[in-house]
Deep mutational scan, measured.
Amino acid sequence: VTTYKLVINGKTLKGETTTKAVDAETSEKAFKQYANDNGVDGVWTYDDATKTFTVTEMV
């Protein structure tokens, strides 16, 4: 189990959250659901070296 981080650069929501998951794909699903639940829709990137997802909304 690995800890993954999500950085949110939204128009109205900014911040970070973490989750523990067995792999990046599992954490990505959880993070995308979290973003969707909070009305964040944007461009996703992933940095495997830091286990960090970033979602950026276009303004």
Rank of each mutant, 00 (worst) to 15 (best):
A35G: 02
S27V: 14
V55C: 06
A21R: 03
A24Y: 15
D47A: 03
E16I: 13
T17L: 15
K29H: 08
T56S: 08
K11F: 13
T3R: 07
D23P: 01
G15F: 15
D48F: 08
Q33H: 06
D47N: 10
D23V: 03
V43W: 09
T26P: 01
I8K: 00
E57W: 08
G39T: 03
V1K: 11
D41A: 11
V59D: 14
E57V: 10
V7L: 09
V22T: 12
A21G: 07
E16G: 09
V1S: 10
V7D: 02
N9G: 04
A30D: 06
K14G: 05
G39N: 10
G15V: 14
T19L: 15
E28Y: 15
F53R: 00
V55L: 11
G42V: 02
G15H: 13
Y46T: 00
A49F: 10
E57S: 07
G39F: 06
G39H: 09
K51V: 03
K29Y: 07
E16H: 10
I8C: 06
A24K: 15
V22E: 09
V43H: 09
K11S: 10
T45W: 06
T12S: 10
V59S: 13
I8Y: 06
F31S: 00
V1I: 12
E25Q: 13
E25C: 13
N38Y: 12
T17N: 05
V40W: 08
V7M: 07
D41Y: 14
T52D: 00
D23S: 09
T50Y: 04
L13P: 04
A35E: 00
L13E: 05
V22Q: 10
T18F: 15
T52E: 03
K32D: 01
N36T: 13
T52P: 00
A49N: 10
D41F: 15
F31G: 00
L13G: 08
D23R: 04
F31I: 02
Y4N: 02
K11E: 08
Y46I: 00
T3Y: 08
N36R: 15
A49D: 11
F53W: 13
A35C: 15
Y46H: 01
T26G: 06
T17D: 03
L13A: 07
T17M: 15
T3S: 06
T19Q: 09
K32V: 06
S27G: 12
V7T: 05
T50G: 03
K11R: 13
A21N: 05
Q33W: 05
A30H: 14
T50K: 06
D23N: 11
E57T: 07
T56H: 06
W44I: 02
T52G: 00
I8R: 00
A24F: 14
G15T: 14
V43E: 10
T50V: 05
T17P: 03
A49C: 09
L6F: 06
V55T: 02
L6A: 02
Y4C: 04
N38C: 13
K29N: 07
A49Q: 11
T54F: 10
K5C: 08
T2P: 06
L13C: 15
T45Q: 08
K32M: 08
K14L: 07
K20C: 14
E57Y: 08
